[in-house]
Amino acid sequence: MSRSPSRPTRLTALALALTMTMVAGCSPDGANSDDAVRIALIPATPPSLPLIAEKNGDFTAQDLKVKISSLPSTSITTFAPALGRQYDIAWGTPADVIAASAQGHDITVIAGAYVDSDDRSQAQIFASKSSKVTSLAGLTGKRIATPSLSGTLYLAVLTSLKKTGVDVKDVTLVEVPFPNMLDQLNAGRVDAIATIQPFIGGVKAAGHAALGDPFLSVASPTVAGMWIADRQWADKNPKKVASFIAGLNAADTWVSSHDQEARSFLSAALKLPPQVMANVPLPDWDSSISSDALAPWIDAVAASGQVNGTLPKSADLVATSEKG
């Protein structure tokens, strides 16, 4: 459980989780009939901490009932509109959270989830070993695979290229799901890919050239995942928010002294081969966040021109507990 001295240190909370059950216990109007906190996330390593908290009884110790839903990564953009209806708390990534706010959804960031850094990198751009490309500058004229043509990783790739002097108009960005990227790269259908853990290990093992972590082109270190809630729900339920945070922080503490047990559990939960999970750098889970952490992402969104509407101010996105 490392802590970077340059990281924001205020608002506490941290969460990531996964389970194969869908949300239950909702009345027809979206109200939560059994008072459980309904959590939505995607099945990946960064959003897996709530599952550990649930397994260890950390939520129960806080007298908090939870119902956790795991949905495909393509569902992230639907999380914000569903807050206050289907879900109470959801996994969010910077670009999606900023876009949802610009579209008029009244959401608030209740906690950070993890921090991406050189030491605990969760993303990477790779060039095909056959392309002979050894730097981002060499990607001019190349085909680059990203998981979608929107969202945080896509935004980070655009930012990386721009800061390296590569005109986005001079590359071809194509949508390829994470599990298919290595095959596409090996087959020469794309020249480079932007991928995340736990897929990075397999790409490295195949001998392709790592060109850098695109998230760090936005800020280094950077908060690349967070937990969000409908603002009215968060304001009305401060005890549940605090209990959620406390449960996740307890799970984070447990992982720091039970590395192998955590990896074994996540291997089964995320359906990853044990040999893959054994070598994946675990996320630098951290529940702290401040508006300063979101400001670079808002600047990146503005520079990309991806989002229509009025972009939020970073101070307005973070839960009011940061402001005293």
Score class of each variant (00 low, 15 high):
Ile196Gly: 04
His258Leu: 06
Ile200Trp: 03
Pro72His: 11
Ser73Gly: 14
Val109Asn: 02
Pro43Ile: 13
Pro273Ile: 12
Pro281Lys: 09
Val133Trp: 00
Asp230Glu: 11
Leu11Val: 15
Ser304Asn: 06
Pro179Asp: 12
Arg120Trp: 09
Ala278Ser: 15
Gly247Leu: 04
Gln184Trp: 12
Leu216His: 04
Gly324Glu: 14
Glu54Asn: 13
Pro281Phe: 10
Leu11Pro: 02
Pro5Ala: 14
Leu155Trp: 04
Gly92His: 07
Thr77Asn: 10
Ala295Gln: 15
Ile76Phe: 01
Pro50Leu: 12
Gly92Asp: 08
Asp292Ile: 07
Asp35Asn: 14
Gly92Gln: 10
Asp34Ile: 12
Phe215Leu: 13
Gly138Phe: 06
Ser148Gly: 12
Ile228Arg: 05
Val171Leu: 05
Leu11Asp: 03
Phe199Ser: 08
Ile193Thr: 03
Gly324Gln: 14
Met277Glu: 08
Tyr154Met: 05
Ser27Val: 07
Pro47Gly: 12
Thr134Cys: 01
Asn186Ala: 08
Ser243Val: 02
Lys129Leu: 05
Ser291His: 15
Gly309Lys: 09
Leu136Lys: 07
Ser287Asn: 13
Thr19Trp: 05
Ser70Arg: 03
Leu266Phe: 12
Ser287Thr: 11
Asp88Trp: 01
Asp167Val: 09
Leu248Trp: 04
Ala219Leu: 03
Ser256Lys: 11
Gln306Val: 01
Lys323Thr: 11
Thr74Tyr: 11
Ala61Met: 01
Asp213Met: 04
Gly207Glu: 03
Lys162Met: 09
Ser27Ile: 01
Asn186Ile: 05
Leu136Asp: 02
Met22Val: 12
Ala246Gln: 10
Pro273Gly: 14
Gln122Thr: 14
Trp227Lys: 08
Leu311Arg: 06
Leu311Gly: 05
Ala300His: 04
Gln184Val: 00
Gln62Val: 09
Pro47Val: 05
Ser128Thr: 04
Val157Trp: 00
Asp96Phe: 10
Glu175Tyr: 07
Arg143Asn: 09
Asp119Cys: 01
Ile39Trp: 04
Asn56Ile: 10
Tyr114Ile: 02
Leu216Phe: 07
Asp286Glu: 13
Gly104Tyr: 04
Arg189Leu: 12
Tyr154Thr: 03
Ser150Thr: 11
Val166Arg: 00
Thr21Leu: 10
Gln197Phe: 01
Ile39Cys: 03
Asn279Ser: 15
Leu83Phe: 06
Pro281Trp: 11
Ala206Leu: 07
Val166Asn: 03
Val157Ala: 02
Pro238Gln: 08
Ser69Lys: 01
Gly207Val: 09
Ala31Ser: 15
Asp316Ala: 13
Phe244Asn: 01
Ala127Trp: 06
Leu41Pro: 02
Ala90Leu: 03
Lys323Ala: 14
Ala100Lys: 02
Ala262Ser: 13
Ile245Cys: 15
Leu161Val: 05
Gln306Thr: 07
Thr222Ser: 14
Ser150Asn: 09
Pro312Ala: 06
Val280Ala: 10
Gly141Glu: 04
Arg263Trp: 11
Asp96Glu: 15
Glu175Trp: 05
Leu317Thr: 02
Val115Cys: 09
Glu175Cys: 12
Leu64Trp: 07
Ser117Ile: 04
Thr253Tyr: 00
Ile125Thr: 03
Thr152Lys: 01
Ser291Cys: 08
Asn180Gln: 15
Val307Phe: 06
Asp170Gly: 10
Leu64Arg: 02
Arg120Ala: 14
Ala251Lys: 05
Ile89Cys: 00
Cys26Ala: 15
Phe244Ile: 02
